[in-house]
């Protein structure tokens, strides 16, 4: 008998998301169903307001669907209490944000150490792993610089390192190149692909940038809260 195909890393089933806006309700998602396999490099595209970030937030377990369900790494995240969900995110997920969102009072190395410390890794080991990650990102010399002393591209590389240092199953990147010039943006996407190849991490990236979309293995197109092409 042939091996059954492995279960998808992410499974979103008939997810809707409503937001109150004044006296009316806005439907950001109108029943999205999608599966993402482990190790995939997925790019999500669509115009502003199409629901990309909302879907990313659901997949990243930082928001709950109004109806439907979201399963990540075999866990129905809707059933987890807030503290359990936080621990789940710390173990299984990494995030890369459009504005980097590095902690400004920490150095590049300390920013990368931070999620390791959240996972209970000792100070010494966290420091060693952070420096190793910075070396692999080509930022060994900037380990003790604070975000304000780094360029946008360097900050985003640190953010990628921070997302990957815990070896998460899934990295969510919301417009990671939006604040970077096209060359730096391309380098960041290349870096993510390289990390995916090396570590097997699944990447789900939202973007408006056709250059980034061109590098995707799979594209999800969104419009008016619905997936129009998977």
């Amino acid at each position: 008998m042939p091996d059954p195909s492995p279960p998808p890393l992410v499974r979103v089933i008939a997810a809707t998301k409503d937001y109150p806006l004044g006296h009316r309700t806005v439907q950001a998602l109108r029943g999205v169903t999608v599966e993402i396999a482990g190790g995939a490099f997925v790019v999500m595209q669509g115009p502003s307001g199409s629901g990309k970030t909302t879907l990313l937030n659901l997949i990243g377990c930082i928001d709950h669907p109004t109806t439907g369900s979201v399963m990540v790494a075999g866990e129905d995240v809707g059933t987890l209490a807030d503290a359990s969900l936080s621990r789940f995110r710390a173990r299984k997920l990494g995030f890369v944000f459009q504005n980097f969102n590095l902690i400004p009072v920490l150095t590049a190395a300390e920013n990368i150490e931070y999620p390791l410390r959240l996972n209970g890794v000792s100070v010494t080991e966290a420091r060693a792993r952070a420096l190793e990650m910075l070396d692999s990102l080509g930022l060994g010399a900037e380990a003790h610089q604070r975000p304000a002393e780094l360029s946008g591209g360097q900050c985003q590389r640190v953010a990628v390192g921070r997302a990957l240092v815990t070896h998460p199953a899934l990295v969510i990147a919301d417009e990671p190149t939006a604040n970077l010039d096209s060359t730096t943006g391309a380098k960041i996407i290349e870096l993510m692909r390289e990390m995916r190849d090396r570590l097997g991490t699944t990447f789900v990236i939202s973007t408006h940038d056709p250059q980034v979309a061109a590098l995707a293995e799979r594209r999800l197109l969104m419009r008016d809260g619905l997936l129009t092409d998977t």
Binding site: D82, R89, A90, L93, F95, I103, Y114, L118
Partner: peptide, 16 residues
């Protein structure tokens, strides 16, 4: 605020 959101996304609990 955004930094707090990022920390929470990374896995910091409310108690944290």
């Amino acid at each position: 605020t955004r930094e707090i959101g990022a920390m929470r996304a990374m896995g910091v609990t409310r108690a944290g």
